[in-house]
Design a binder for these strands. Structure first.
Lengths: 356, 356
DNA sequence: CTGTTAGCGCTTTCAT
DNA sequence: ATGAAAGCGCTAACAG
């Protein structure tokens, strides 16, 4: 399983503790060196405004802190202040669907900017692990909780006491009013408008519509809203789909099969795919059929998955604004509570799969 | 940018603090309810073995804790014990290359299993942010540090005092002897042996060899070792490459271009691609040239990127054992220090791009 | 303007 | 067998 190759270092193995050394410098050390009280040192180092200590005192304390390399012990501070400058990010899956990792990245960036730090916990969507994760976070006195779902949906949050601000990210929960979601409705509209803008109003096939929205992984309002936007925009453009193909999951294989099915009976002008992986499969089927993209068939899709940029021609897609959403979760958490549903705009990513 | 839709909840906005309630139950509360001292409660709840308190005391304390929903304050405990059961995972990028997120997932899983929790920090490889990340972690009294690199390489670790166990994950550093890497040499051998096993010993093209290994993103020993394994295995099989194509980066476009170049001058039997994205580009070029995989041209590649499973036929590839590596980082950190370089075996993932 | 004192919640000698 | 008291490092009242 693992192949170990031993290196020089210690002759005899020792415990980690023995390998390391020196205890941390404390505030008392700084105060002592500066010849002042810990109180003075504390006030000066935390930069409290109201209290006026001599400029000389300031200088001495800062000099002492610097020369000793002093760093505050945040755990100790938290005992007094009840603030750890730490936020927990609890999600069902971590970057399993690679693009959803944008949620973490955005949150991480937001936290860093706000001088906070993030505890990341994965629950697999299992209630038992969710409870453990919440408790582990709360036990460490985090200042806030972000509950993230990798696929937008209503999230079940265990009914245990949570006494810190909480934000639902890419999901909703009746218990927590603050939630952040992609603006799927407008995204859906945008996709259709893109086609219309390219002069395509006829011969459009919808790929991946899930007949039973209440089934499977996508029982969320997400896909419902996306579809609502699509249908409204189609109606507004005064057209209808020439065909609607449904499937139970959005993987490349399904896109491939669906597209082959379509091509048997008709010659579509465009494929509107409900996500990029379906579109990927569609590319394969279109290639096999000798149809050129976008001359024969145009494609528009959703998610801005990484593969969208790999395809040739590149896939035009309505992206999920995950990074922006993650960032927003932090600012909502750290700001005044906003008991609202925040909808974040989905970016339009233009590539070659649409005629210009 | 963000579209806000206000929901029912509070008439007037309040601060988060006012929205929440009740202070935490403390050990003193438990002790009081049990009619014992905090000392007794502490000993019983932490399950210290040597001290023998009455069975009755045990029962009372546990009952009290349960009925109050007591949870220890780990920050406070850390003040005494110097153990936070928290580990920091500091990496240059978080899941930017989607498959590298396996490192995090593995570490997360390992931490959870060991009842620890993980602080995740991203540095972008910038020294200033690295310092901040280390300090932020150390200030929170983490029990250990994992330094991860998303692409295996030698990692620069800022020269600041680090007084906790540290493991380099997917990277090396002269300062920290414990490091975990994929066993690239054996992986390289495996790839060639796969081809040989399929009866292919002639007409093999190497795709993506970087002439100047010291340039660009891959100055690591990783690619060097991978290539060494490949060359040794080729020699062992008594054959040589019919062509070696180099490029400066491993993206689909390069694989596409390189393959087209190859096809101009010869008809290869197999392509050995140094990563899956190159292979992806190669697929596109082969498709265009009307060559069938694996009948005309076989492919073997590295990484087991997600796209490898999307391709048709599926791409046979030597995977990066990131999840296993992440898990191992935790166990090394929490166990006895192992001042060694641990090499983790790369899994062989068989799919249709190789004739059977 | 500065220092003393108290205590956050917990574990740990050390008495009883 | 159990509890009192000290103290981890820090900040907040309150004196001086």
């Amino acid at each position: 399983m693992a192949n170990e190759e031993w290196r020089a270092w210690p002759r005899k193995r020792r415990k980690w503790g023995e390998v390391l050394a020196k205890k941390r410098v404390t505030l008392a050390d700084v105060a002592r060196l500066a010849g002042l009280s810990t109180t003075a040192a504390s006030m000066i180092l935390t930069g409290r405004p109201d209290t006026r200590l001599s400029a000389e005192a300031h200088a001495k304390v800062h000099a002492a802190a610097a020369s000793l390399g002093y760093r505050p012990n945040i755990a100790a501070r938290a005992l007094r202040t009840d603030k750890t400058r730490t936020i927990a990010f609890i999600s069902d899956y971590v970057a399993t669907t690679r693009f959803a990792s944008g949620l973490i990245r955005g949150a991480l960036a937001g936290a860093e900017q706000a001088q906070h730090v993030m505890l990341v916990l994965e629950t697999g969507g299992e209630p038992a692990r969710e409870i453990q994760a919440i408790e582990a976070a709360l036990d460490r006195q985090v200042d806030g909780l972000i509950f993230a779902a990798m696929r937008a949906r209503e999230v079940f949050v265990p009914d245990i006491a949570i006494n810190v601000p909480t934000v639902m990210l890419n999901g909703t929960s009746p218990r927590f009013p603050v939630s952040i979601l992609p603006d799927e409705y407008r995204g859906g509209r945008a996709a259709v408008e893109l086609l219309a803008g390219a002069g395509i109003r006829e011969g459009i096939v919808l790929l991946g519509y899930n007949e039973k929205e209440e089934t499977g992984l996508f029982r969320s309002e997400t896909v419902t809203n996306r579809l609502a936007g699509i249908r409204d925009a189609m109606a507004a453009a005064g057209t209808t789909f020439v065909a609607e193909l449904s499937c139970w999951n959005w993987e490349p294989d399904h896109g491939y099969d669906l597209t082959r099915t379509v091509l048997k009976s008709l010659k579509p002008r465009a494929l509107l795919c409900l996500n990029d992986r379906l579109a990927f499969g569609a590319y394969q089927a279109l290639d096999e059929a000798g149809l050129a993209i976008p001359e024969d068939v145009a494609l528009v899709s959703f998610d801005n998955d990484e593969i969208a940029s790999y395809l040739r021609p590149g896939l035009t897609t309505i992206g999920l604004p995950h990074e922006e959403m993650g960032r927003m979760a932090i600012s909502l958490l750290l700001g005044t509570p906003t008991p609202a549903r925040v909808l974040v705009e989905m970016p339009v990513v233009l590539r070659g799969s649409l005629p210009r």
